[in-house]
Design a protein around this nucleic acid. Structure first.
Ligand SMILES: O=c1ccn([C@H]2C[C@H](O)[C@@H](COP(=O)(O)OP(=O)(O)OP(=O)(O)O)O2)c(=O)[nH]1
Ligand SMILES: [Mg+2]
Length: 1038
DNA sequence: TTTCAGTAATC
DNA sequence: GATTAC
DNA sequence: GAAA
């Protein structure tokens, strides 16, 4: 810890131990300290309170304590945006990020000096001085630096920063100086705290609390404010569970990794305890108390997210292997107390199993347990590794409240009102002459004639609309907006013909721009008074029918008006094969549409123009209308706020548009109203267009390399998933698509940080990728154990817990698992998972999903022709490949009959047909309107592979919410639900509920289920939540 | 320092 | 109640 | 891991 903390040396060492992910500086220092003096010495000198070795381990605690004690202590929430970083030296105000940025950028400029490259030694002195932190993992480093330099400060509030400051200066220009402007000594603490927190969010609280408890005296120190929080936890006993969850898993794994031999050996015996966690867990918990000092130590290990395998001493000790790490750990461990280690390890394992995934749970959940370490000590082999999840009947939520008719009615009413037609465009002063709908139709007609006569070149055409005479309603018929014209072009291109006027006798289809176009506008355009005036044989569909289907049989899916869903359906046809159509009931369908993919594939060959454009246009229009209504001139913000905040939905959407818009713009100057409106809304850099990540195009975005790297890292974390990893993965899930959507190549730290979801850590990683083309962290994380974990988690029904058990049992390959090596037992579903490992882990081409569904649907309809049955999930979102087939089934209970029991019959039939081959999970009550089935299926063909298939049946009135849920994607759903929460609602697959009373203590507890606000259509829900309507293919956030 | 969606099936 | 999955 |  000497003054000379050498970053480079630190890095070098890191690299040396390939496996050490980002070793915490704490660990590093500790090691150094131990070698030299002792922690004790360190602590002694720095702090009066001898917390024993705990010091370091307890950095968190200390921090906390200090914070508590201090009156002023307020952590600085991260300063949000910032100004520029001018005189770093003079003004302390600098924002951390800014500094980092400047540092990084600076480095970049000096070509050779790449902050991310360790090899180059660089004048440490200088560098540090200027901006030490910057270096990767800086947060960690900075933290370390802080500690090193100002151990006292960090540890004790008593000391003020001032004294230490000197030290700092000598060493490093303390980063802090630059960073925070805190006047009081706090600043240091606060700074470090922030960093620490970031590094170890989840565990922090638990640990600290736990520690505090353990050290009663200190605990008392806490200030009132903090106390509160403490108290909360206080009631709960500190238990291993509480903190163990943090990283126990990782640790153990890693450890084992390091010393595989041991594991293998002991696996059967020692690991066994793992299996028995549940039952004994509680008892075991008591153990925690037993090991006081140790606990602190543990904490450390646990805390460190980026933990290195090596890190965990605890296990390694027990196992006693690891030559390499040994010393490191040993040192740590020693202070802690070896004896405890054993118990600790065990405890961890146990706790590991018990670890709660929910953050909250951790807090509340385990209150009662008196932890007792001793418990785990006794384990016997009897508990073999049982791999399956535990069970229990849990209370089941009651069926959703039906009814809601009122709501429905209401909503419907609203619907038309809101969306006005911003769409109508009047004039465009563009080069292209202004056309009315009729004029443009005539123009197209003339063009067609020329083509026919050979005068003009014939363009590639689709034949989907051949023979169809379509009357398109885009709003105001006196003007054909760009959007309208494009769509008319598409119709013609697809083989259809445009009806210049609405003539019921010749028109075959009426296509309406979108679901937001008011009924009144449509009636007016058709010059009729009621919808019923439209002949039954003429379907009234939304544009997406043209864009995505064009099939007469699917008209009902795109019906603009629920009351005309069956329009266009020929009775005989219905009955013939499947009275399919009849059943439709699909207002649901409005929403539904199948994919862009199709779209993309079919017409998009042409790339831009065509449907996609259209889609874009229309989208823009919708969006505009929403925004306008909502309020404001503010546009961008406006649109963004609502959603963006909760996720980035709106933002993402918008981003998408930009791209599109740009494209449009270029291609045709004309701006329609909507476009203008859109523009007004705020169009950023016009730039998006060139390569925009346009949904339809697989085009790699400019930041694809970055995305790839981050995705790779994310995957590694997914494999580890030691509790905190869960959220880390969540973060990656959100920032990766955001980066992908970023219109331009990221070039600076600040630019990276400006992207929603990208924080300091990620921004640094991005910079590293930009600079070096790689991410060291990936190498550190990519260890054999992680790979094994990943392999096991690929088994259906095997998650991180089970994977670890398998690993602990000595399994390293699927063969091992199949052979039951180490006494592992798999549940039936897991066995199937192993058997069809490859099939289940592969994704199927979209076409195959359709093929399978095409076999299933008729069978289902033969059971009940009135069923609504459609493919959801990634298929509906238009993905080209599907991980599984998600099928939604419901039925309008009009005739007093329901789909109850249909699932059972269907499954039976499918089994008989050999389509469904294995069951993974059966519905609890197949007769219930709400049921879920999971299984494997395959095409009848010879070499057909097994595919995952899920069925979900829901009551008719929940169809909107179910559609929303089942369409996903998952990140999108979570964002929606999060927003709903913030608005005081609760959204689930059954509906959007209001007046939800949440337990103040635990927000998850909802004493009342709330009152149904919306559930029949997706639009309703979007509307209530004020989320701009998005087609399924746009709902991609992951 | 807290929160990050909400639910079902299995054990 | 924990785990896994959607 | 990010945001509040
Ligand atoms: O954690 C989850 C997982 C899934 N879903 C919803 C959204 C998702 O679209 C749908 C179907 O799940 P699935 O796992 O099949 O995902 P997918 O979107 O269909 O993708 P894949 O192609 O992998 O099947 O269930 C959630 O709400 N939360
Ligand atoms: Mg799916």
């Amino acid at each position: 810890m000497e003054a000379g903390f050498d970053l480079l040396a630190f890095f070098a060492e890191q690299d040396r131990h390939m496996n050490i992910p980002d070793e915490d500086i704490d660990s590093y220092l500790k090691r150094l300290n131990n070698k030299n003096g002792e922690i004790a010495s360190c602590s002694s000198k720095s702090s009066p309170e001898p917390r024993t070795l705990g010091r370091e381990a307890e950095k968190l605690n200390s921090r906390k304590d200090s914070e508590l004690d201090r009156p002023s202590t307020s952590t600085h929430p991260q300063p949000s945006v910032a100004e520029e970083l001018q005189d770093v030296d003079t003004s302390n105000k600098r924002k951390v990020s800014l500094q980092l940025e400047s540092f990084v950028n600076e480095k970049r400029r000096s070509s050779n000096d790449n902050p991310f490259v360790m090899s180059k030694k660089g004048d440490t002195g200088t560098e540090r001085t200027s901006s030490p932190l910057a270096i990767a993992e800086l947060s960690g480093i900075s933290r370390e630096l802080d500690r090193v330099e100002y151990p006292k400060v960090a540890l004790h509030k008593e000391f003020n920063s001032s004294p230490q400051m000197d030290h700092e200066k000598s060493l490093v220009h303390s980063p802090k100086e630059l960073q925070l402007s805190e006047p009081s000594g706090n600043r240091i603490d606060s700074f470090s705290e922030i960093m620490d927190i970031q590094s170890f969010p989840v565990s922090t609280t638990n640990v600290s609390n736990a520690l505090k408890r353990k050290t009663p005296p200190e605990k008392s120190i806490a200030t009132p404010a903090k106390k509160r929080s403490l108290e909360k936890r206080t009631d709960t006993h500190v238990s291993l569970e509480q903190f163990s969850p943090i990283s126990s898993f990782e640790t153990s794994v890693k450890t084992s990794h390091k010393a595989p031999i041991i594991i293998a050996k002991r696996g059967e015996i020692e690991l066994l305890p793992l299996t028995e966690p549940k039952p004994t867990r509680k008892n075991k918990l008591s153990a925690a108390k037993l090991k006081p000092s140790k606990s602190s130590r543990n904490v450390n290990a646990e805390l460190d997210p980026p933990t290195s395998p090596i890190e965990d001493p605890s296990i390694s000790f027990s196992t006693s292997v690891l030559p390499v790490n040994e010393h490191l750990h040993t040192e740590k461990a020693v202070p802690t107390g070896g004896s405890n280690l054993t118990s600790e390890v065990k405890g961890r394992l146990v706790s590991n199993a018990a670890a709660k995934r929910r953050d909250k749970v951790v807090k509340l959940g385990t209150k009662p347990q008196k932890t007792s370490a001793g418990v785990k000590a006794p384990f016997d082999e009897s508990d073999i590794i049982s791999i399956s999840p535990s069970s229990s009947p849990g209370a089941q939520p009651s069926a959703l409240p039906n009814a809601s008719s009122k709501i429905t009615g209401k909503s419907k009413k609203d619907a038309p009102v809101k969306p006005v037609k911003p769409k109508t465009t009047k004039g465009k002063k563009e080069k292209e002459p202004r056309y009315t709908y009729i004029q443009y139709a005539e123009k197209l007609e003339r063009d067609a004639e020329r083509v026919a006569s050979g005068v003009a070149p014939k363009k590639r055409t689709r034949t989907a609309l051949k023979g169809k005479h379509i009357y398109y309603v885009g709003g105001d018929m006196s003007t054909a907006s760009e959007s309208t014209k494009r769509r008319m072009d598409v119709i013609v291109k697809d083989g259809g013909t445009i009806a210049k006027v609405y003539d019921p006798s010749s028109v075959t289809h009426i296509v309406i721009s979108g679901p937001e176009l008011p009924v009144g506008t449509v009636l007016k355009a058709l010059s009729i008074r009621r919808l019923s005036d439209i002949p039954h044989r003429i379907p009234t569909v939304v544009w997406n029918w043209v864009a995505h289907s064009g099939d007469d049989e699917e008209c009902w899916m795109y019906a603009r008006f629920a009351e005309r869903i069956e329009a266009g359906i020929e009775p005989q046809k219905l009955k013939g094969k499947s009275k399919a159509k009849v059943q439709s009931y699909a207002d649901v369908s409005n929403i539904s549409d199948f994919t862009q993919d199709r779209k993309t594939m079919q017409r998009n060959g042409t790339l831009i123009p065509g449907t996609e454009d259209e889609a874009v246009h229309s989208k823009i229009a919708y969006a505009s209308s929403f925004q306008m209504q909502s309020s404001d001139p503010e546009n961008a913000k406006d649109s963004e706020d609502p959603l963006a905040e909760y996720c980035a939905e709106a933002k993402a959407e918008r981003d998408t548009w930009w791209g599109r818009v740009g494209e449009v713009e270029d291609s045709d100057d004309g701006r329609t109203d909507d476009e203008q409106a859109f523009k007004h809304i705020g169009r950023p850099p016009k730039r998006g267009w060139t390569c925009d990540k346009n949904p339809g195009k697989p085009t790699k975005c400019v930041n694809e390399d970055i995305v790839d790297k981050l995705a790779e890292l994310k995957q590694l974390h997914e494999s580890k998933m030691g509790d905190g990893e869960h959220w880390r993965v969540y973060s990656y899930s959100k920032c990766i698509p955001a980066i992908r959507n970023h219109p331009k190549r990221i070039q600076s730290f600040s630019e990276a940080r400006s992207i929603r979801g990208v924080g300091e850590k990620t921004a640094l990683k991005i910079m590293e990728i930009i600079e070096t083309g790689k991410l060291r962290r990936i190498g550190y994380e990519k260890t054999d154990d992680v790979k094994a974990m990943r392999l096991f988690q690929g088994i259906y029904g095997v998650g991180r817990s089970t994977a670890f058990k398998l690993y602990a049992a000595g399994c390293r390959t699927l063969e091992d698992v199949k052979a039951g090596k180490g006494g592992v037992k798999l549940s039936p579903a897991q066995e199937i998972g192993v058997r069809f490992y490859d099939d289940i882990n592969d994704r199927m081409p979209r076409e195959e999903a359709k093929a399978i569904f095409d076999l299933i649907k008729p069978i289902a309809l033969s059971i009940d022709p009135k069923l609504f049955i459609e493919i959801m999930g990634s298929y509906r979102r238009g993905k080209a490949d599907c991980g599984d087939i998600d099928i939604l089934i419901t039925r309008l209970p009009e005739d007093r009959k329901t789909h109850s029991g249909v699932l059972s019959h269907l499954l039976q039939e499918l089994h008989a047909h050999g389509i469904i081959t294995e069951d993974l999970a059966l519905p609890e009550d197949p007769e219930d309107l709400e049921a879920i089935y999971r299984g494997l299926c395959k095409l009848p063909s010879e070499g057909a592979r097994r595919r995952r298939i899920d069925f979900l049946t829901v009551p008719w009135q929940s169809r909107g919410a179910a559609l929303l849920y089942y369409t996903g994607d998952d990140i999108f759903n979570r964002a929606m639900r999060l927003k709903a929460n913030k608005l005081g609602y609760s959204l689930n697959q059954r509906g959007l509920f209001g007046n939800v009373v949440r337990d103040p203590h635990d927000s998850r507890v909802k004493p009342n289920t709330g009152t149904l606000v919306a559930s029949e259509t997706e639009q309703e829900i979007f509307r209530v939540l004020d989320v701009p309507w998005q087609e399924p293919h746009k709902r991609v956030r992951g």
